[in-house]
Amino acid sequence: MERSILLTFVHPVYHKSRANRALLDAVQTLDRLTVNDLYETYPDFMIDVQREQELLVSHDVLVFQHPFFWYSAPAHLKEWLDLVLTHGWAYGHEGKALVGKKWLSAVTVGGGAASYVSNGKDSFSVPELLRPFQATAHLCGCPWQDPFIVYGCHTITDTGLVEAAESFRARLIALRDAPVAPEQNLTNV
């Protein structure tokens, strides 16, 4: 089974980005992977919903790569969710378009892992803070994958970054080439 990946990339200042650039550079040459850069494609936020939905339908794995802004995604991804995941298409009784597509959140976080604990500066863990995305995936029938997280982006060393990029690449290849587990498709419908 050959699966394809749609990588929705969301970064308003990509030209200043270091971590996300490294991650994207590591994966964008993969076969059967499409990068959809929201800020570049829709600089005025006028999202082409039909195009987006067609892209989603024609891929099997949905990856959302973005920096972690205010414990969430940059504004464009929120706009995208609001416009593209329509009732009767992505959710609701008739909304089955995304059922079974794996959903992976890949985020770069400024702070260190140590501060994302209950008694830390950020109070909650990153997977906890990603709950709105997890719930979204669940409602659309998309199996939620353990998020891919790079901590401490502001201070991360070049070698640390290369390692992170390598493991991101490995993660995506695994998602793309893993054998289909039949029970997985059933449980999430």
Partner: peptide, 9 residues
């Protein structure tokens, strides 16, 4: 060479 969103802003 500027990013579209950047140029638009």
């Amino acid at each position: 060479g500027q990013r579209a969103h950047h140029a638009t802003r």
